[in-house]
């Protein structure tokens, strides 16, 4: 019991109790509430801003995807156009070749026809000349009938003339 009496001073206990209660009340109002409120508001703001950042990130990702798709589409279109142009070129080349072949064929045919015409013409003139010549040979033979040797000589002359002409 003595130990308790020595170590417990009621006055001290009371003063400590009251002092603590006063300081607790003051701190609760002026320190704990404002500080915890600041912490809470900061946390809320961070959370909301964090959400905003996440949303923007998603939007950016979506935009990027769109952009990528667009790029791909453009590339594909370009490739298709190129392919088309190549096909067109090939087709043109083929057409030109075909045309050239046709043209050469027709010109060849024309030339052939012209040559044939010329040949026919030449043959015609030749025949006329042959006829002419034979008439003329006949005339000369008839004119110089009386002289046999002379006739022979004349015929030879004429033939020589003919040979020369030919």
């Amino acid at each position: 019991m003595e130990y308790f009496q020595e170590n417990i001073h009621l006055g001290e206990v009371l003063v400590q109790l009251i002092a603590f209660l006063i300081v607790f009340a003051v701190l609760k109002k002026f320190a704990w509430k404002p500080l915890l409120a600041i912490i809470r508001s900061r946390r809320e703001r961070f959370e909301s801003e964090w959400g905003g950042i996440e949303k923007t990130k998603q939007e950016v990702a979506a935009l990027q995807k769109d952009y990528q798709a667009h790029l791909q589409k453009i590339e594909e279109e370009a490739r298709a156009k190129m392919q088309e142009a190549i096909q067109e070129g090939r087709r043109l080349a083929r057409e030109i070749q075909e045309k050239a072949r046709l043209e050469s064929q027709t010109s060849f045919e024309k030339a052939k026809a012209a040559i044939e015409l010329e040949v026919q013409k030449a043959r015609l003139t030749l025949r006329q000349e042959i006829a002419d010549l034979s008439i003329r040979v006949a005339e000369k033979i008839l004119a110089e009938k009386m002289d046999g040797s002379q006739q022979e000589k004349k015929a030879l002359e004429i033939l020589g003339e003919l040979e020369k002409k030919l």
Partner: peptide, 17 residues
């Protein structure tokens, strides 16, 4: 008590973000 009260209250009064 004084130390805690003065320091914590002056800390709480700043209210900076």
């Amino acid at each position: 008590l004084g130390f805690i009260a003065i320091r914590s209250i002056s800390a709480a009064r700043k209210k900076e973000f």
